[in-house]
Design a binder for these strands. Structure first.
Length: 705
DNA sequence: CAACTCCTAATTTTT
DNA sequence: TTAGGAGTTG
């Protein structure tokens, strides 16, 4: 199977073809010569020394030790002192937020001069690389980037076609076979295993499984390889790339084709990577490909905060940095500027129990501050109420809502707290709950846009499936079957197939009218992007559908659509907007409001809050039973504690879903740094029988369900 | 045959 | 709470 097969460019792509990645910058104004000195003046000697180091360097930056400042200073040093053009710097992060933060700090340090244009996330940068030569992934120009949700739909269709729906896989946790399959495919890609290579890889894995302790189910694995192959075919047919593809194909191309690799590597004189402890094989290989000639990499990371193993990240890459980059220097940043003494000491004690660390001990010059509070509650309701009472008390003392965060292990834990906060009328936000661009109405609107842009391209089939019956046009399973059959018979797009498909008259009429309006709007080049979306929403009856709906959420949905329309004004082409929508998560400016933050521990990494609540520290929940890597859970506990600047409150329940024991980390916190089981005034005042219960005092027969 | 209503079951972490 | 399935209605 050739990677270059199945390419069948169709007409109607002019508008899309206008997209061009911006590579070479025009000549850049010179940066102020003293920019680095000014920046370095705020750094510690260790930070400044790291920032100015010439060769390959690994900065082991503990939590709260000024990692971003150091990274920023390093970039400024390249530009202002070494006079490397900003355009020849590659700087990569994991999140859009981190990238934006870095860009703005660099711009500030350089007096408003341009930050590196190749500063972004692994996925964002790799997407730009792939846009430059999509044929390396057997894609046509203007391919779509599909998000996890779209990808899931593809996998679902493939599984159905292979008769895998409903079948119980042998996997022990087969609650959600679709999800498991999606994860498995993502993992193939994270490990640079191609669809063609997956079958062989799976067989090798099965053969090896006798000796490995990891449970391997041959049946599920083989099924995964088969689904992967068909899934990739489906993506290619739709001219679409999923997140994994963005890194997989450029990385493979750089590994296989040295001319291609050299072409890319020669664009950059210096590389910077944030959160290096969290790279997976694909990201690691991608980054290394750029470094082959000069080896000038500046990697920042903290092995104690490696918490993405389940996504293919491997802590080994940071541990063996000096082997990958000969002559590499290693610098430790151990002075913490974030937390007070007791918090830091507790965090140190928890992480110290992890063996196999590169080793670091954080210290602070701050005062000891408040001890960590550890409170036991009878059940989850009591815990939520207790936390809310405490939040009210601190607010009354003058703490802003935005200075308070509730950080939990698993997203389902947010519910109880949200309800309690709502009841108490405390402004709050669940960070990253459902991203703006992941909302159904936004995705529907964007699907309309896709469909209008290339109505006769099979690339738009997925968009068609999404919106043809939204609002209802009488297209159910049966009608779709007919259209699909007609489309594959005539080898045309689903929309085009409506012309000749034998459908019930009313459904056919509705479909044709829909197609007609789409085409008319799509062909009219006089509209701005925003106008186009607005027109499509009206012509398709989508807006009317929401207006007529008596569902409570339709008001919000209309507002979201309005927001999308105004957001669209900031993009030049549909392509840019769609790429942004696929790779971005939240709306800009979302986190600038005065609200209590609720988020998972993973989302909280890199953030800090004066007041932190850490609920549900119970065995099974945290550490989670689902994670086989106990060390990783411990590192997560370390991340959790080190988010707190002034006050950290841990809590756990004797009863959540069955009786539970407190997390083992609770016992790892030394007595001198914590206060256990304190009862708060607010609770007494309310007179509610919300007595914290010490689990260890429960009769032993209650300890196990 | 489509569309709506009701019911049940299940909830790790995500660029 | 919601997502997805089954069953019922039109």
């Amino acid at each position: 199977m050739s990677r270059y097969s199945d390419i069948d460019p169709l007409a109607g792509m002019e508008e899309w073809d206008r997209y061009e990645p911006c590579f070479d910058e025009p000549s850049e104004p010179q940066p102020p010569a003293d920019a680095f000195d000014k920046t370095a003046a705020t750094l510690t000697p260790a930070q400044a020394q790291a920032a100015a180091h010439f060769g390959p360097i690994l900065v082991l930056a503990g939590a709260g030790t000024g990692k971003t400042s150091t990274l920023t200073a390093a970039v400024v040093h390249r530009i202002a002192v070494e006079r490397i053009p900003a355009s020849r710097i590659l700087a990569v992060t994991f999140t859009n937020k981190a990238a934006a933060e870095m860009a703005s700090r660099i711009r500030a340090a350089l007096d408003g001069l341009a930050a590196p244009s190749w500063l972004g996330t692994y996925h964002g940068l790799a997407a730009r690389q792939l846009r430059d030569a999509p044929e390396i992934a057997a894609l046509r120009p203007n391919f779509d980037i599909v998000d996890a949700d779209d990808s899931r739909r593809f996998v679902k269709r493939v599984m159905k076609a292979q008769g895998l729906d409903g079948e119980e896989s042998g996997d022990a946790n087969a609650r959600d076979p679709l999800k498991i399959m999606c994860n498995r495919i993502a993992k193939f890609k994270d490990n640079l295993i191609t669809p063609a290579g997956a079958a062989a890889w799976v067989e090798a894995k099965i053969a090896k499984s006798d000796r490995s302790r990891e449970p391997v189910d041959p049946h599920t694995l083989r099924a995964a390889a088969r689904v992967y192959a068909d899934y990739q075919r489906a993506l290619r047919k739709a001219n679409a790339a999923d997140f994994g593809d963005l890194l997989l194909w450029p990385t493979l191309a750089m590994r296989k084709d040295d001319a291609y690799r050299a072409r890319w590597a020669s664009r950059f004189d210096w590389l910077a990577a944030d959160e290096y402890q969290d790279v997976n094989f694909a990201q690691y290989s991608w980054l290394k490909s750029f470094a082959a000639e000069h080896g000038r990499v500046f990697c920042v990371g903290d092995d104690d905060q490696a918490i993405y193993g389940w996504r293919g990240s491997d802590i080994e890459y940071i541990r063996r940095f000096h082997q990958d980059f000969p002559g590499a220097v290693q610098v430790r940043l151990e002075e913490n500027f974030r937390s007070t003494g007791h918090i830091l000491a507790a965090a140190n004690a928890v992480i110290a129990r992890d063996q196999k660390r590169l080793g670091k001990t954080l210290y602070t010059r701050k005062e000891h501050g408040d001890k960590i509070e550890i409170v036991a509650y009878r059940n989850a309701q009591a815990e939520a109420a207790g936390v809310v009472d405490e939040i009210l008390a601190r607010h009354a003392e003058g703490t802003g809502w935005q200075d308070i965060a509730i950080l939990y292990r698993a997203s389902f834990l947010s519910r109880g707290f949200e309800e309690a906060l709502m009841r108490a009328r405390i402004p709050h936000v669940i960070v990253g709950d459902v991203g703006f661009y992941q909302r159904a109405e936004i995705k529907d609107a964007l699907a309309l846009l896709r469909l209008a842009a290339t109505p006769d391209d099979r690339q738009s089939d997925e968009a068609f499936r999404r919106v043809i019956n939204e609002p209802r046009r009488g297209f159910g399973a049966k009608a779709m079957e007919t259209v699909e059959a007609e489309a594959s018979f005539r080898n045309v797009s689903l929309l085009r197939a409506l012309d000749t498909a034998e459908l019930p008259t009313k459904c056919r009429a509705a479909g044709l009218q829909f197609a007609d309006q789409l085409r008319r709007i799509g062909e009219d080049r006089s509209h701005t992007l925003a106008d186009q979306i607005s027109l499509l929403l009206d012509a398709s009856g989508y807006r009317a559908m929401l207006r007529d709906s008596k569902a409570e959420s339709s008001e919000d949905r209309l507002e979201n659509l309005q927001e999308l329309i105004s957001l669209a004004g900031e993009f030049h082409t549909a392509r840019e907007l769609l790429d942004h929508a696929a790779l971005a998560t939240s709306r800009p400016g979302e986190d600038e409001t005065d609200r209590v933050r609720l988020m998972t521990l993973h989302k909280a990494k890199g953030l800090e809050f004066p007041h932190v609540f850490l609920p549900a520290w119970e065995a099974g929940v945290f550490p989670s039973d689902y994670n086989r890597d106990a060390d990783e859970e411990r590192r997560l506990a370390y991340v959790a504690l080190t988010r707190g600047m002034r006050r950290v409150s841990i809590s756990y329940c004797a009863f959540r879903r069955g009786f539970g024991a407190p997390s083992l980390y609770v016992d790892d916190i030394p007595e001198e740094h914590c206060v256990r089981g304190r009862l708060r005034d607010a609770e007494r005042r309310r007179g509610t029988p919300r007595q914290p219960v010490d689990w260890r005092k429960l009769p032993s027969h209650l300890r196990r369900p």
